[in-house]
Design a protein around this nucleic acid. Structure first.
Lengths: 276, 276
DNA sequence: CACTCCCAGTGGATGAGCCACTATACCACA
DNA sequence: TGTGGTATAGTGGCTCATCCACTGGGAGTG
């Protein structure tokens, strides 16, 4: 029965992490599986669990972690789904090399792991963040061009409304959400639903570290003024201008976010030691 | 005890689906959870389960499906991870609108659902496949350009080796795998690890329907001859040429795959009724 | 009418137990 | 000595019965 007591106690302690007494504002509690998945993800994503290595047997691992095998299995299933491990019946769970085999679904995990791990691996973090912004800029330009080619009247109307909503935002968080929505609508305007999924993956990634990247959203009106020409180009179907202006906009806002993280936009290096 | 018998019997039947008598060639068996996840994914992805609707309570749903609540929970956890549903404690599991909120991780699910669902929704399938190939073409060109800008001597060597390996392949499946590996290496050569993840997502998507898209790989030597100039342009750092040639290559192979599926590359419509 | 409290229904977590699969060591046989 | 079958230990897959924790709404109270 000692095991019971231990598990219960730990549950209680773990719970105390996320009681979120705030009312009405959602927010989903973090379950044991959530925590375990996050912890193990970080272990793998930061390389502390080497690719190719085998996790301990589930029974042993579960007791080590102080949870039931069932909960651990839920966690492992999640990691497997994410492409971080591979579980084989009768053999065990192997850590995969996510950098080689992982998909875009890893981006949110990667970013939030990077955000919470700000200790030793600053270089590692920068690599991913920098890469993310480059992808945002280059893919965004391509998508804006396609949007200019295929947008409908309804799309234009929706974008116009969102731009106005953006300029009227008062809180940075609100502006960030509206801006993200504009990117989604641009992707939808392209007529290519795959673009929407890719844009979602990128947005999910940097929304997962959310508050760290609000710098461009401090002045919503200015941001709207900067974004406006992009939407105008899309509206009038000017493919080249849409591409050009979009890349410029994405470049400017990306550099602003990087700068807020303490990264020099030109050298791509930390301007001050220890980002956290 | 009737429940026991039913469950066991069903397990047995389900098992008989995937005994995979083939030896040595991997292949992971399909577990109950795998099947359930696939089934429910298809229900959602094809729209038979409407976004916003609530799934039945877990206890009831499990008995309906003839599995335990635990297995069902594993399945639901997987769907939640994939972004298809959202489960809230004390409330239930809600079907999300994946077309609006889903990430790139959905692509493989989407394609395999499309492949096995060839009955009623041909138009729906075509939309996604067509979008996937457009993304492959446009993003691939951008990535090839970046690869030309940042490739290292080691990258060039690796690509040269893979190109030769491609030309020497005898089976289409082998050629398909080698070609996929070339795309991965090109992405890696760009120096942007996010590109690798995006490429993986796209490759995973059309590898998941694998055999349906082998047409361009029937003549590996010819394919290698077509791919060669792209790699040469990357090797000599000719950014513009890499982009141009890559887009041409991706366009040609994409059209070939579409044609093999019975889609006209120009009109983007089925050439014969009922693709399956 | 507003507020509190309770409760039915839902998902979350547990642990014991059995089944299915894999790899390996061992043994019989050629 | 080599080959092939077989017993076995260890692993993950799946089920069950049971309890805990959360949500939402309705009954009761002021």
């Amino acid at each position: 029965m000692k095991k019971h007591a231990t598990a219960r106690t730990e549950t209680g302690e773990l719970r105390s992490f996320a009681p979120s007494p705030g009312r009405g504002v959602v927010i989903s509690r973090e379950t044991i599986v959530d925590q375990l998945a996050r912890t193990l993800s970080e272990e793998i994503l930061t390389g502390r669990l080497a690719p190719g290595s085998l996790l301990p047997p589930e029974r042993e691992f579960a007791s080590t972690l102080g949870v039931t095998r069932t909960s651990l299995k839920h966690t492992l299933a999640r990691l497997e789904q994410a492409g971080l491990i591979e579980t084989r019946h009768g053999v065990g769970s192997e850590v995969l090399d996510f950098a080689k085999t992982g998909g875009a679904g890893l981006l949110p995990l990667l970013l939030s792991a990077a955000a919470s791990d700000s200790s030793d691996s600053s270089e590692w973090i920068l690599d991913w963040i920098d890469g993310l912004f480059e992808a945002r800029r280059l893919f965004g330009a391509v998508i804006a061009a396609e949007a200019a080619r295929n947008r409908s009247a309804g799309d234009v109307e929706e974008l116009t409304g969102l731009l106005e909503a953006l300029s009227l935002q008062t809180r940075p968080e609100g502006a960030q959400l509206v801006e993200a929505e504009i990117h989604r609508v641009i992707a939808r305007s392209s007529g290519n639903r795959v673009f929407v999924l890719v844009v979602n993956s990128i947005l999910d990634a940097y929304m997962s570290v959310g508050s760290l990247l609000v710098s461009p959203f401090r002045d919503p009106a200015a941001l709207a003024a900067l974004f406006g020409p992009v939407l105008t180009a899309i509206a009038r179907g000017d493919v080249a201008a849409a591409k050009e202006l979009s890349e410029r906009y994405l470049s400017a806002t990306g550099d602003s976010m990087l700068a807020a993280l303490g990264v020099d936009a030109n050298t791509r290096e930390w301007t001050s030691e220890g980002g956290g």
